[in-house]
């Protein structure tokens, strides 16, 4: 089991995935937890692993700030068409990984709805900060150890 928090902690709620992952690592030092900025190459490397993978990322879907949603099997809803010139996001990385035949044995994406993504802001909105703490605690209780098991794939 590997847990990856994706995001940028200097961009307001964009850091939700990283904050949650860091907190989870504090609560459960036995887990394999890491963070990444969401750069597509790194995401592809992570998706190439042989262990079940949980990815925690900030989500912008128009819902209330702090709402946590789970997407088992990495089944993200269709995203708005948007091509980056420089980088891609988790959605593209998943799609690219699939077309290359890369897929971890299981993949759960957990999205935390953010409210503000201001550049140069090193803090989360209060609702999002609370959601991160709650989610980290939930995952700490839910996830089994580094070598075995996985995550219950309960949707939403």
């Amino acid at each position: 089991m590997r847990v990856v928090g994706v995001g940028n902690t200097l961009r307001g709620d964009d850091g939700a995935g990283v904050v949650t992952a860091d907190r989870l690592a504090e609560l459960r030092p036995d887990l394999d937890v890491e963070t990444c900025a969401g750069e597509v190459g790194t995401l592809l490397d992570l998706l190439d692993g042989e262990e079940p993978l949980v990815v925690i990322d900030a989500l912008r879907s128009g819902g209330p700030a702090g709402r946590v949603r789970r997407f088992p099997d990495g089944a993200l809803p269709p995203r708005r068409e948007a091509g980056g010139t420089h980088d891609a996001g988790l959605g593209e990385a998943l799609e690219l990984a699939a077309s290359l035949g890369r897929r971890p044995p299981s993949l759960t994406v957990i999205g935390i709805e953010g409210a503000r993504y201001d550049l140069g802001v090193a803090s989360l909105s209060p609702e999002v900060a609370r959601a991160c703490e709650t989610l980290a605690r939930e995952l700490a209780g839910e996830l089994t150890g580094a070598s075995t098991g996985g995550l219950s794939a309960t949707a939403e």
């Binding site: 994706v6 995001g7 940028n8 200097l10 961009r11 964009d14 900025a37 969401g38 750069e39 990322d57 900030a58 989500l59 912008r60 879907s61 128009g62 993200l76 809803p77 269709p78 995203r79 708005r80 948007a82 980056g84 010139t85 420089h86 980088d87 996001g89 988790l90 959605g91 999205g111 953010g114 993504y117 550049l119």
Partner: peptide, 13 residues
Amino acid sequence: ISCATHFLDLTVE
């Protein structure tokens, strides 16, 4: 352009 920005964008959902 995308320095520091990456989040999942799901506005059509």
